[in-house]
Design a protein around this nucleic acid. Structure first.
Length: 574
RNA sequence: CGGGGCGUAGCGCAGUCUGGCUAGCGCACCUGCCUUGGGAGCAGGGGGUCGGAGGUUCAAAUCCUCUCGCCCCGACCA
């Protein structure tokens, strides 16, 4: 491709809408353009990079035995009602009606569709296992899209679904995907880590996320420095104490103090002169089937997924003001466990300490000198808070966890029979008995992989793309297109590279060299061949490696071989 | 959904408080000259429903009302 005819208008200034580096650079490098909040067009340069990611994914998925399909983006409500998710998925599911009043949704994921396909086509154990995948546009109506294509509403995703006859087979499918993902992300040149994860509204029992390590990542990962444990903050467990008991309380009783308009942990601490560690935070949750009070230490945070599991309920949300008043007898900010007539679940973090300050279940009052063993009726003690940096590793128990940030680029789930049961996807086994198919699902955010790669490697001059993702691994840059000798040498190198299968870009624009250098840096081309009179006089061109900045003088007739070797070497980096 | 900010040329912004010339600057774009190893210079030029609607006024980018959109923080969510 010649730059003069490439639809790539770079921007010198950072766009105002962008916050993180990858978003800024993708806009400046004309990879994407925003149409509406969280909705982007892919421009030629970006699309070419996106296709590189897709192709790596395709090759590895095919290699792993999966077969590509393409399902509809628009899905009828009917199948979502069948799986039960029409009710559960919430507002993120973009719903609309057609002209006849039929209900539809833009697919945020495709478990329902794939299950209807497989249940109709698969009858026998002989048809299994299978793994079907697609690369397709999804829509999730995110509350707050941000960071460009990193968290957009419309986005391209690779999603795969495996179907097995038994748990053993499902585990094999899961492992095959896990290995495929490792190859995919390695080939994309990413530094990443697979971590244990929550499965969220997709469901299922067991899941891993693939995290690209980057300080601007939205997710927090806790990992153990002395063993292989690593988990999303949302999932990270806290080791159960050896003896889950509250500290023995001395005789006495709580004391009520007046705390007018003092509600938050911070306010209580300031007002009473105590630390958050001495407080019990009492949160009232509505499970749909009743109310439960969750107790955590003042400096801890409730983890709703853990709480759900502890309580054994399907849904959970913070109770509203009216429900809080009804159950605690006081407005928000004054709830406490003493004489609270609801189910109470306390976190491990509250064990073996005291006394505490709690709400008094009375407006403008708190209690001090509260001992949970003596003054409260706790129904259950469990791990219901978020783990954090410094908590002991739940696996080896040898070291405190570290926290690092990551960008989730892939997520694999063991679904079990959640969808096959709900939607009646079954097969006949060897004994002629009907059994539900065991499923797994496996997602990769394609655009997010590209954004994450840019995020991970960018420097102050722009993108630094790995060869495997770079639309043009080599930019041939004639310093002055007016000099016949320069242009001739550059064209020759460019044509030879192209003929030998390298996607080269010839910067044939009649612009000043500085402009072209800056642009080559901005778009992150891994190798730049600079052709100028200065070098030609010595019979050389200069080849600069974007990632390291190193420049080598190479004889003109060896330039093509040099680029071939460099790009091949980097391209097979897995 | 709560809090904050912003909509003026493709991009980045000034002008709005205190209404008044033909709506301005930088980048980008077009023409010419000149220049060519890290975002040159000179001259000329094109491009605007000042987010939209309504109102006040002799006069509105500017004041008032309504409305739409975007960004950030939070809550929420894979």
């Amino acid at each position: 491709m010649k730059w003069s005819s490439l639809f790539l208008h770079s921007h010198k200034e950072d766009p105002r809408e962008a916050e993180v580096i990858s978003h800024k650079l993708m806009l400046r490098g004309a990879m994407i353009k925003r149409l509406a909040s969280g909705i982007y067009s892919w421009l030629p340069y970006g699309l070419k990079a996106l296709r590189k990611v897709e192709n790596i994914i395709r090759e590895e998925m095919d290699q792993a035995g999966a077969q590509e399909v393409l399902m509809p983006a628009v899905q009828p409500a009917e199948i979502w009602k069948e799986s039960g998710r029409w009710e559960f998925y919430g507002k993120e599911l973009l719903r609309f009606t057609d002209r006849k009043g039929g209900e539809f949704a833009m697919g945020p994921t495709h478990e329902e569709v794939i299950t209807t396909i497989v249940r109709d086509e698969v009858r026998s154990y002989r048809d299994l296992p299978i793994n079907l995948y697609q690369i397709q546009t999804k829509f999730r109506d995110e509350i707050r899209p941000r960071f460009g294509v990193m968290r957009s509403r419309e986005f391209i995703m690779k999603d795969a679904y495996s179907f097995d006859t038994d748990e053993e087979g499902a585990a094999k499918s899961y492992d095959a995907m896990r290995r495929a993902y490792e190859r995919i992300f390695s080939r994309c040149g990413l530094r990443f880590k697979a971590v244990e994860a929550e499965s969220g509204p997709i469901g299922g029992s067991y899941s891993h996320e693939f995290m690209v390590l980057a300080s601007t990542g939205e997710d927090v990962i806790l990992s153990c420095p002395s063993c292989s444990y690593a988990a999303n903050l949302e999932k990270a467990e806290i080791a159960a104490p050896a003896e889950p008991a509250f500290r023995q309380a001395p005789a006495g009783s709580p004391e009520k103090v007046r705390t007018p308009d003092v509600r938050t942990i911070e306010e209580v601490c300031g007002f009473l002169g105590v630390t958050p560690q001495e407080l019990v935070k009492t949160l009232i949750y509505d499970t749909g089937k009743g109310v439960v009070a969750a107790l955590v230490r003042g400096d801890h945070e409730v983890n709703e997924a853990k709480l759900k599991r502890a309580v054994g309920c399907e849904s959970l949300e913070l109770a509203d003001e009216a429900a809080i008043e009804k159950h605690t007898g006081a407005p928000r900010g004054f709830a406490g466990p003493v004489n609270l007539p609801v189910q109470i679940v306390a976190d491990y973090g509250l064990l073996d300490a005291g006394p505490y300050v709690t709400g008094a279940n009375e407006e403008d009052h708190h209690l001090t000198n509260v001992w949970l063993s003596r003054d409260a009726k706790v129904d259950q003690v469990a791990d219901i808070r978020n783990a954090g940096k410094g908590d002991l590793c739940p696996r080896c128990g040898q070291a405190p966890l570290d926290d690092i940030r990551g960008i989730e680029v892939g997520h694999i789930f063991k679904l079990g029979t959640k969808y096959s049961n709900a939607m009646n996807a079954a097969f006949l086994d060897e004994g002629g008995e009907q059994r539900p198919i065991i499923m797994g699902c496996y997602g990769i955010g394609v655009g997010r992989v590209l954004a994450a790669a840019i995020e991970q490697y960018a420097d102050e001059n722009g993108m630094v793309l790995p060869v495997s993702l770079a639309p043009y691994p080599v930019v041939v840059l004639p310093v002055n297109v007016g000099e016949e000798e320069v242009m001739g040498a550059a064209s020759k190198i460019y044509e030879e590279l192209t003929a030998r299968g390298v996607d080269a870009l010839l910067d044939d624009r009649d612009a000043r060299p500085g402009v072209k250098f800056m642009d080559a840096d901005l778009i992150g081309a891994p190798y730049r061949v600079t052709v100028g009179m200065r070098g030609l006089k010595e019979g050389v061109v200069e080849i600069k490696e974007r990632a390291t900045g190193t420049v080598e003088k190479i004889r003109v007739d060896e330039a093509v071989d040099y680029c071939m070797a460099k790009t091949k070497e980097a391209g097979s980096d897995y």
